[in-house]
């Protein structure tokens, strides 16, 4: 019996199975330890950045510049996505609602969803695609061309010089963009409700006002603020940890966007749970 077992153990097939399973385990282990390292590094960087902000070590001109580049330049794309989403949402709901006789609720349904979920989420996802990649690519190419080291060698902290302006810009601009997204999303919905289902502007807005409170708007904007932090920090962290030349920069930018969008979706659920459902 023992003899047979030993033979089985020593057979090439068994060894191959063992190799594969060890390989799989090792790769899972590496993934897990990599993601812990990622989260740790991201946390430290965020902490450093917030500390620098609290000490008011801020470069205002550069922050304004980043507000323009990251915020203002995202305005059109945020408006377009929000407008069409508000419109399609209204298109889907208005006719059905009228059919079942509660057309007067459409304004509420559309604006409730836009203000609490769609506005913050859509702006965040769109800005993540644009800005998270841009931040990761810019800082990444500075890293691989030794510009980050050069900055340090001049006695300048990359966190203060590069990360803080980008973080502040997104913390200011993403909520602002979300306000625009909310407004245009609701307006688009209102227009389609009128064209498609003949729901009057006044009815629509009255229902919207009744359903959506000031609190909902504030909570939505709070989510945007958090998304702004996530976008800036993931982009910056990916950028600053880039290795491997031009190919590495490309990889960093892609990773940054993918990670960022996943994190935004998860965080959105968590925050909605605690802000709305949990309350």
């Amino acid at each position: 019996m023992a003899q047979v077992l030993r033979e089985v153990e020593e057979s090439p097939a068994a060894q191959a199975v063992e190799r594969v399973s060890v390989g799989v385990l090792a790769s899972i282990g590496r993934r897990v330890s990599d993601s812990f390292e990622y989260m740790g590094g991201l946390t430290i960087l965020t902490w450093e950045t917030l500390k620098t902000i609290f000490r008011l070590r801020i470069r205002f001109a550069e922050t304004l510049n980043q507000c323009y580049l990251l915020g203002y330049q995202s305005l059109i794309i945020v408006l377009l996505t929000s407008l069409f989403t508000g419109m399609v949402f209204s298109l889907e709901s208005a006719l059905t609602a009228v059919q079942y006789g509660f057309g007067s609720f459409v304004g509420g349904i559309v604006s409730y969803t836009v203000v609490r979920e769609l506005g913050p989420m859509l702006s965040a996802v769109v800005v993540a695609g644009r800005c998270c990649a841009a931040i990761a690519a810019e800082l990444g190419s500075m890293e691989v061309t030794e510009q980050i080291e050069a900055l340090k060698s001049l006695g300048l902290a990359p966190v203060r010089f590069l990360v803080v302006p980008r973080l502040l810009a997104l913390m200011i601009m993403l909520p602002l963009l979300t306000i625009f997204a909310d407004v245009i999303g609701v307006k688009g919905g209102q227009w389609i409700a009128y064209v498609q289902a003949h729901i009057g502007t006044q009815d629509f807005m009255a229902s919207a006002r009744q359903t959506v409170g000031f609190e909902d708007v504030v909570k939505g904007l709070f989510k945007s603020l958090i998304f702004g932090i996530v976008i800036a920090m993931i982009g910056a962290y990916q950028g600053l940890t880039t290795t491997g030349g031009a190919a590495g920069v490309g990889k960093s930018a892609t990773n940054a966007v993918v990670t960022c969008i996943i994190v935004i979706f998860i965080l959105n659920f968590v925050m909605s749970y605690f802000l709305y459902a949990g309350a």
Binding site: M142, T145, E149, A150, L151, S153, L154, G155, A157
Partner: peptide
């Protein structure tokens, strides 16, 4: 600490092999 290193580096110049100018 990193803050001390940064302070120290203001007294040291570094000319990089590939210049590393801010582009």
């Amino acid at each position: 600490r990193e803050s001390q290193l940064i302070e120290m580096r203001t007294k040291i110049g570094f000319a990089f092999q590939f210049a590393a100018l801010f582009d």
